[in-house]
Every structure is written in structure tokens, then in C-alpha cells.
């Protein structure tokens, strides 16, 4: 190809590609605009549907009607979203009436179909509806989804399983928690909350005892949402037997959270730990008890070799109820250790 034809070739290619982009942009823009108009119209119609059906649902909360006009298929999603929202705010018999109403409209079948849909958004909605409906025939399918799916679907499925059958959910949930390390704790807590501490506390405590120390700290933190007596007993047992500093720290954190003065002795032992972060955790756990009994114990930690332990100790002393500035000045004046005097001065002035 000679120079001139090469030049012409490049110019032509540029022109054609440029025109292609311009045309594509025009077509795409038209599509976007029409789609936006379609969405606005759809939202408007859905809003009209919701405005019509909200009063119908509210009217029928106390008594299930003999007959209701069917929901057109194109409004199934709008209906289920509205129905789910109501489920979230209702308690007791009204919830059951709402379920009967949904069944009479064959929404259980719609939810089953949605659960098996290829669109994840629909799947989530279907799963949530089946959970709210307490549809026991969906339990095994939900368990399968919880086992095999991604985080979002698994968690949603577990949420619904818990609503359908608490006792049957706890064991699969605990085994999933252990197996699937990618599950964030805050999402697990939401499901545990659904199950209720009276049901999950003991099985979770047993699971923690059986788990390797490396995996224990994350699970111990979940015990904050458990029954306090079971959680405290677990923490005491672990503090008696554990060697792993992370496990000790998490257990002290648990005692700090529940703050029971019966645990003073067991916490105090860890003020002598070789690790400063354990000592600091012990100081925090003691200060959470908020009783004057701990004052003489804390005073000893004012002379700790680590600045942060001394600082947290001084802060804890200051925050104790009924400890006045004069009391702290007295504590300061009876100290012989220069560091202890310094840190008290530091937090005082």
C-alpha cells in the first residue's frame, strides 16, 4: 500500500468508527430515555397498585376475607414487597392473618417460583416471602440454597429457615458459621437474633469449646448476643484453660461486656499477664464492673510497666462512680511510684 492510500485508509477508518460511535450513542441514548419513561410509568402504576392494596391488606389484618380480587401477575413483585414490609412491622395474630391472605392469593406458589428464578433479586424476594409465610415445605430447598449459594443468598435463606423452624436451623447454621469463614459476623448476628438467645446460646457455647483455639476468638465475640449466664460460664472456663492470648483477650472482652462482680478474681489474675494488651483488657473488664471493690486492684496497675495500661487504669479509676477528684488526689498522694503519680496527674489536669 502506498503512502497516499495508507493515509486515505486511516482517514476512512477514523470516519467510519467515529460515525459508528455517534450512531451507537444516539441509539443508546434513545433507548435510555425511552426506558426511563417506561420506568417512571411503571413506578407510577406500581404506586397506584400499592395505594390501592395497602388499605385492603390493613383492613383484613383482623379477619381473613372470604374472597379477594386476584393480583395481576405483573404486580406480583409490588404486592410481595408491600406484603413483606407489613410483615416486618407486625407481630402476633395479624401476621398470621396476613399469611392466610397471601396464601388465598396463591402468593406462596409465586414465592416458590421466584425462589427458583435465575434473577437473584427475585430469588431473594421469594426466599424472604417463604420465610415470612413460615412455609415448612420450602425448608429443605432453603437449606440447599444456604449450603451452596453465595453469601447473600445463603444468609437470606438462613434468615428464612430460622423463621420457619428455629430448632432445625441452629445446627446447620453453626456448622456453616464454622465452615464458611467468609461470612461476616455482623450478618451472622442478625440471624442469631432471629433465632433467639434461648435457643442458640448453649449449642454455640458447645461449638466454641470444640473449636480449635485459632478459630475461637471470632465465635467468642458472637456470645455477646447469647444468654448472659451461658456466656459468662464459657468465658470463665476458657480463662481457666486457654493459653492462646487472642482467646484470653476475647474471653475478657466477654466478661467486660456482661460486667458481673462475681468475676473479679478471675479477671484479676490476668493483670499479671506477660502481655500488655491482656493486662489492658483485664483493666477494661474490671472497670466495666463499676464497683468500688475494684479500686484497690486497679491501684496496683497504676505502676504497670506499660504506659497504655497505666493510662487505661487511671481513666478507669476516674470513671468509677462516686470517686471524686479529692479521692483521686488522695490516691495520687499515697503513691510512691513516679509513673503512677505522673499518669494520675496526666488524666487529672
Amino acid at each position: 500500500m502506498d503512502l497516499v492510500s495508507t493515509n486515505i485508509f486511516i482517514i476512512r477508518i477514523s470516519l467510519y468508527v467515529g460515525i459508528f460511535f455517534l450512531l451507537s450513542s444516539t441509539i443508546l441514548f434513545t433507548m435510555i430515555f425511552l426506558n426511563r419513561l417506561r420506568i417512571i410509568r411503571k413506578h407510577k402504576k406500581e404506586e397506584e397498585f400499592t395505594n390501592k392494596w395497602r388499605p385492603i391488606l390493613l383492613e383484613n389484618l383482623y379477619k381473613v376475607p372470604d374472597s379477594l380480587e386476584p393480583v395481576p401477575a405483573k404486580y406480583n413483585i409490588a404486592f410481595l414487597i408491600l406484603w413483606n414490609n407489613l410483615q416486618d412491622v407486625l407481630r402476633g395474630k395479624e401476621k398470621e392473618h396476613l399469611n392466610q391472605l397471601a396464601r388465598s392469593l396463591k402468593m406462596d406458589q409465586v414465592a416458590f417460583k421466584m425462589m427458583n428464578s435465575r434473577k437473584m433479586v427475585n430469588q431473594i424476594l421469594g426466599i424472604l416471602v417463604l420465610g415470612n409465610l413460615k412455609e415448612s415445605s420450602s425448608f429443605d430447598k432453603l437449606k440447599e440454597i444456604a449450603e451452596k449459594s453465595n453469601l447473600t443468598l445463603s444468609m437470606t435463606a438462613l434468615h428464612s429457615m430460622a423463621k420457619i423452624n428455629l430448632e432445625k436451623t441452629i445446627n446447620p447454621l453453626l456448622s456453616f458459621i464454622k465452615e464458611r469463614g467468609e461470612w461476616p459476623s455482623y450478618k451472622i448476628v442478625m440471624i442469631l437474633d432471629e433465632i433467639g438467645s434461648s435457643i442458640f446460646s448453649q449449642p454455640l457455647a458447645d461449638l466454641i469449646k470444640r473449636t480449635k483455639s485459632k478459630e475461637q476468638p471470632v465465635l467468642i465475640k458472637l456470645m455477646k448476643f447469647a444468654d448472659s449466664e451461658i456466656a459468662k460460664t464459657l468465658a470463665e472456663d476458657l480463662l481457666d484453660s486457654a493459653f492462646d492470648p487472642e482467646v484470653i483477650s476475647a474471653s475478657l472482652g466477654l466478661l467486660e461486656y456482661f460486667g458481673d462482680s462475681r468475676n473479679i478474681k478471675i479477671i484479676e489474675r490476668h493483670l499479671n499477664s506477660d502481655l500488655s494488651f491482656i493486662r489492658m483488657k483485664a483493666v477494661k473488664a474490671l472497670s466495666a464492673l463499676g464497683s468500688l471493690e475494684i479500686l484497690p486492684i486497679l491501684e496496683k496497675s497504676l505502676t504497670d510497666s506499660d504506659w497504655w495500661v497505666r493510662y487505661r487504669t487511671a481513666q478507669s479509676i476516674i470513671s468509677l462512680p462516686m470517686v471524686t477528684r479529692e479521692d483521686i488526689l488522695k490516691i495520687r498522694d499515697r503513691q510512691n511510684d513516679k509513673f503512677a503519680i505522673d499518669i494520675l496527674n496526666y488524666v487529672l489536669f
Binding site: S14, L15, G18, F21, L22, S24, S25
Partner: peptide
């Protein structure tokens, strides 16, 4: 003109 159309066309395409 060809380069101008190409440049504007592509920039517009990306924005779209």
C-alpha cells in the same frame, strides 16, 4: 473532520 467525528463520537459513547 474524520478525527473530529471520531474524537467526539467516542467521548460521547463513553458518556452514554
Amino acid at each position: 473532520v474524520a478525527f473530529l467525528i471520531l474524537s467526539v463520537g467516542f467521548s460521547l459513547f463513553i458518556s452514554i
